[in-house]
């Protein structure tokens, strides 16, 4: 059967809707990653996980074991903050590249950070590997893995072989007590 003018218009509108929805989804996913760092940089630690799914998995590397669920990551994060090992968090995101597939997406981004650890200026370069899901029309972070290229004292630089300082070398993150 031959397509009428209205049939063709409907087909074009359907295509256009898909494209617009895709652009909207990409913008919202960027917002999810940015919200995480906006809140941290602004000292609003309690809001940092607002856009994490209830069953989020966070793998921050170093000595923190993988964290399962928003409630757990909130508790762990509160313990880290309370320990005083991270008096200053300044994180800057670059090159957030998103691979969108319907209601799920994966992404990578690079992070530079300039925290203070042990009273020293520390410089960080790392990569985030994320997974996102659209649940009830809203995008959520489902899984994030942090991979450090380096985390070093500013005055030491990153040319040495051992280029990831462990900020928890004196702290048991599980008990929040000094290590023996």
């Amino acid at each position: 059967m031959e397509q009428t003018r209205v049939d063709k218009l409907e087909a074009r509108v359907r295509e256009l809707k898909k494209t617009v929805q895709r652009l909207r989804d990409l913008e919202e996913i960027r917002g999810v990653r940015f919200h995480y760092h906006s809140t941290l940089n602004s000292g609003k630690f309690a809001n940092c996980f607002d856009r994490c799914a209830e069953d989020v998995i966070c793998q921050w590397g170093i000595e923190i074991p993988a964290q399962y669920g928003r409630k757990t990551v909130q508790e762990t994060s509160a313990r880290v903050m309370a320990s005083g090992i991270a008096p200053s968090i300044r994180q800057f995101i670059h090159a957030h590249l998103i691979d969108l597939k319907g209601d799920t997406a994966s992404a990578t981004s690079y992070m530079e950070a300039c925290p203070i650890q042990f009273g020293k200026s520390v410089t960080v370069a790392s990569r985030w590997d994320d997974k996102y899901a659209k649940i009830d029309g809203q995008w959520w972070l489902k899984h994030q893995v942090l991979d450090f290229a380096y985390q070093v004292r500013l005055d030491e630089g990153w040319a040495q072989e051992d280029r990831v300082i462990n900020p928890f070398e004196t702290l048991d993150i599980k008990s929040n007590k000094p290590k023996n």
Binding site: T4, V6, L9, E10, V13, K17, V20, R24, E27
Partner: peptide, 26 residues
Amino acid sequence: EDEKRVRALETEIEALEKEVRHLVDM
């Protein structure tokens, strides 16, 4: 029937234009 479909299309196009304006503004 065509008129009804055209009206529905007009509504969809209006919503799309709004979305596109938002994305262009961003």
